[in-house]
Nucleic acid binder design. Structure first.
Lengths: 322, 322
DNA sequence: TGTGCTTATCGAAACGTTTCAACAGTAATC
DNA sequence: GATTACTGTTGAAACGTTTCGATAAGCACA
């Protein structure tokens, strides 16, 4: 027996509409009754039903964040950034992951969603936007009045990394790529290819990677096999760089001497490993917060906006002069 | 204009109840009409309204997880563990954090909640349980038919740590405590006090800590000031141990020689810092998964259960023989 | 006294489901 | 041929809100 607006109405001797208006702070209802109703509501321990409200108002005050997996090292900070902005504005965050969850976006009448999940087809997202759903994408470029985007400046980051290696005198550079599905990986790789062309004397080799430690290790193994002179290695994310560290720690080769490594993401770990990993930094917290802000704007019927998160170089002893 | 069950009914020339039964796979409705309805539903691009269903059925298929903050190092794995079990069973996970979110538990008619948030008062939780909410607590002991609990074996862990230090010949042991609100911190401290009594020759000192890096650093500073001979330090979590590492890396004292450190949690970082941090390990993934399982059981009207997560010692060069 | 205006309150419909009880229609049983 | 039992379908109420349009009361003014 949930206590509803109806019970309050009965006890207060008014109609349910009055109660509804009162509880929602409408100016129509007189201050006197309004206070009386509030008192009764508290007394009866009234709790509004979010479901009923959603049904009627066609809004849920819920935002969905879609991730592929969140064991990844920086999702914590990302979520933290989102939570802060969202909860300040009365929204809650629902975290969705896995194939099943796609169903969820339309069914829940979620007010909006943030996408960081390559398993979504762009057409799928487009059709949601077409139906009026508000989206923010963090993992692809899209152009639609219901879709905002906030992307990393991957190009600048990758260029920074290559320049750094070149500047330190490296003539042979390996790049450990990311998964084909990842937008960030593709953008970073593209920028690398462009950057490397500017240095005609540099020998440049691409290796496959999957943005996780074990693929970093496998790549490192290949580098080890054909090793003859000091090389630079740009890992398209830090996680793989850790894998490279792991591999070479079991050999007689030294990071920062024989193998010079730079990563991307500046995850927390990177500052603790020895030697400190050079990498490309950006604020995950800000990234999440900005995505949320854009989404809230979009929900308030404002226009789609496109933002970019700046990146910067973090030097570290994992890269030294050749 | 959302397409509803009503539109399907009209198009199929049947009543809305038949459509509802058909779509829910009731055996009452004949296979023939059932298929016809399904076809029409697909054709019209029908999407059920979760809000309407929730309102009527009084269930949401949403589980809430309440956290204080999730930038903490192990929340990723924890959430991952939860997500897996929950989504297999058709539930979604809504992550709640911050004072505001307390309101959320009753309003959303969430089917159940997992609590890992010391800012909840135990009485508050009790009253929710009393109203019929299903809860799993991971951060306190509670006994109620609607509340299951799954706790770490903090006692065993803390004892393991002290024994390890004692075994390595340490005669002076510092303990860096956790925040007073934290159940885990309290349990660990209690066990430490008990364990230390068994070694009458050990000098034992408590220092305050807040489970974060900076409080680890402050504690380290104190240790540094009164330093005269090699000491053992048990940090009640790894995060603070990292703080201790940070502090001493700026001094001329060496971890594993002058200061011997053991932590608790075995966060990912711990295996990468130099020297490897000795610590107490347990599976965060399993912890999360088990909590979810218990909650699902509870929702299916089964009894409350209490489970315990085992811990084990991870040796590391941050603790050596004295 | 009647007209018009404002203000506080109310009734009722609507949101999209689920599900109980009722209902025909057919088949089975005596 | 009457009773019973089952089967597939239906109507209607209910879940707890919001909100539009109507209504009544109060007041000022002519």
């Amino acid at each position: 027996m949930l206590v509803s607006i109806k019970d309050i109405a009965k006890k207060a001797g008014v109609s349910i509409s009055t109660v509804s208006y009162a509880l929602n702070g409408s100016t129509k209802v007189t201050k006197e009754t309004s206070e009386r109703i509030a008192a009764i509501a508290k007394e009866l321990n009234y709790i509004p039903s979010a479901a009923a409200r959603s049904l009627k108002k066609r809004e849920t005050k819920i935002i969905g964040i879609y991730l592929t997996n969140y064991s990844g090292a920086f999702y914590g900070q990302l979520l933290q950034g989102m939570m802060e902005t969202l909860s300040e504005n009365g929204y809650e965050l629902i975290v969705c992951s896995g194939k099943e969850s796609h169903r969820f976006l339309p069914e829940r009448m979620i007010d909006g969603a943030i996408i960081l999940d390559a398993t979504f087809q762009t057409e799928e997202l487009l059709s949601h936007a077409e139906r009026g759903h508000k989206l923010v994408v963090m993992d692809r470029k899209m152009d639609h009045p219901n879709i905002s985007q906030v992307l990393l400046d991957n190009k600048a980051g990758a260029t920074l990394a290559i320049d750094y290696l070149a500047e330190k005198g490296h003539k042979k550079i390996y790049v450990i790529k990311g998964p084909e599905e990842s937008f960030d990986a593709r953008q970073r790789l593209e920028a690398v290819q462009k950057a490397v062309q500017r240095y005609s004397h540099i020998e440049y080799v691409e290796l496959n990677g999957e943005f996780n430690k074990s693929s970093g290790e496998s790549a490192a193994k290949k580098i080890h096999k054909e090793f003859s002179e000091p090389v630079g290695v740009f890992c398209l994310n830090d996680e793989m760089a850790i894998g490279v560290f792991n591999y070479f720690s079991r050999t007689n080769m030294r990071i920062g001497e024989d193998v010079h490594v730079i990563g991307f993401d500046n995850i927390e770990l990177s500052q603790y490993i020895q030697p400190r990993l050079a990498t490309i930094n950006y604020s995950k917290h800000k990234w999440g917060a900005l995505a949320s802000e854009l989404l809230l704007k979009l929900i308030k019927k404002q226009d789609a906006e496109h933002e970019r998160i700046n990146v910067s170089l973090v030097e570290g002893d994992s890269v030294r002069n050749r």
